[in-house]
């Protein structure tokens, strides 16, 4: 038994990725969970609209971070601001009592706002838009669609590509008269199609089972999903180029997937995450897909307000996919290596 234990430790010591999983990953999770796992929203972007808006803004409690003050605004303006995610609460003073419109798709901010405004009793009317009963599944499922796409795009795709290497068929592909681009596109197109079918099934099922509304533009939703798929498929190809085995590919995919669940706004509101960790959210594709899917499905948001998320995802898609293609191409069409004598390991350069 002692020999077995020693053998296992020796193997682990040389398996850097597994060691990283054992040591680095728990630390990473501890830090991210410790900081990100925070449902407590301390500041809600708020718009005050209508006559006397400036006076009301001055009296607003600290919880409501007044970002828009417009004395000419109406309830329509309020709904537009919430739909475009420019505010999570919009109070109009043109009615008696004033009306507070709350964005129900920002679940935790809405819950906090309802609690705070509820204490005012009859002095204010509360109208929750987009998710009137503040149902968790309505907010979670649009993000979950992205997570499913991401799972297929990274885990399944990378395993599919690494399996070619493991079975020696990648070498066979390399000697066939196929261009690297044809190999890559031919390889990932089925995953793209399957992921798209999965997306449709999950979306329709979610609408049927959980009565989740789909108030926005279906085509825009599809375009957003397609761009996001390109990003995650590119990540899958990248993972495959640095993995020799399926196990290594899965390890790397986990490193990529898990932080996104925590930091993309899928579960924990991004606004509640301290800036020390929050900046990571803005490098994660799921953050932008969640904005797009929640915005379109629940709020009916259009390109005029969602374009920043589309632009960021497109830039990510271009960079990641190009990088993936170049790296994969290198595996298929080797270049001459350095003519310079190779230094033995550990020798001074």
């Amino acid at each position: 038994m002692r020999a077995m234990i020693l053998k296992e430790f020796r193997e682990l010591r040389r398996d850097r990725r597994t060691m990283a999983m054992i040591i680095v990953f728990p630390l990473l999770m501890l830090i991210i969970f410790g900081y990100a796992a925070n449902f407590n929203v301390e500041s809600i972007p708020t718009a005050i609209l209508g006559p006397g808006a400036e006076q009301v803004a001055q009296q607003a409690p600290d919880l409501f971070d007044v970002t828009v003050v417009d004395s000419t605004g109406t309830s329509e303006t309020a709904q537009t601001l919430l739909r475009d995610a420019e505010a999570q609460v919009a109070i109009t003073t043109d009615t008696e009592p004033p009306t507070a419109f709350i964005d129900g798709s920002s679940l935790f901010a809405a819950g906090k706002a309802v609690g705070a405004l509820g204490r005012l009793g009859d002095r204010i009317t509360v109208d929750i838009l987009f998710n009137p009963d503040l149902i968790t599944s309505w907010v979670l499922v649009p993000a979950l669609i992205g997570y499913i796409l991401m799972f297929i795009g990274t885990v399944v795709t990378s395993i599919g590509l690494v399996r070619e290497r493991e079975n020696g068929t990648l070498e066979q592909l390399a000697v066939m008269p196929l261009s690297p681009v044809a190999v890559i596109v031919g390889k990932i197109a089925p995953y793209f199609i399957l992921a798209s079918i999965d997306m449709v099934i999950v979306t329709v099922l979610a609408m049927i089972l959980f009565s989740i509304p789909f108030v926005g533009n279906v085509l825009l939703f599809g375009v957003g999903a397609a761009i996001f798929l390109f990003v995650v498929l590119g990540v899958g190809v990248l993972i495959s180029t640095v993995s020799q085995t399926s196990g290594q590919a899965i390890q790397l995919a986990i490193f990529f997937l898990v932080p996104q669940i925590l930091l993309s706004g899928m579960i924990f509101p991004i606004e509640a995450i301290p800036w020390g960790i929050r900046w990571l959210s803005y490098f994660m594709p799921l953050t932008y897909y969640t904005k797009i899917s929640q915005g379109i499905m629940l709020r009916g948001a259009g390109l005029d307000s969602l374009w920043p998320a589309f632009v960021v995802l497109t830039v990510m898609a271009v960079f990641v996919f190009t990088g993936a293609v170049l790296r994969f191409r290198r595996d298929l069409t080797p270049h001459r290596v350095s003519e310079a004598p190779v230094q033995p390991e550990g020798a001074p350069a």
Partner: peptide, 27 residues
Amino acid sequence: GLLPPTSGQAFLLGSPPSRASRRRLGY
């Protein structure tokens, strides 16, 4: 043409291994 040499030259059907020459190769 699956591995680049550190030095020297490989010729497949009279030219360095390429997609065109590998079309005529059985491996």
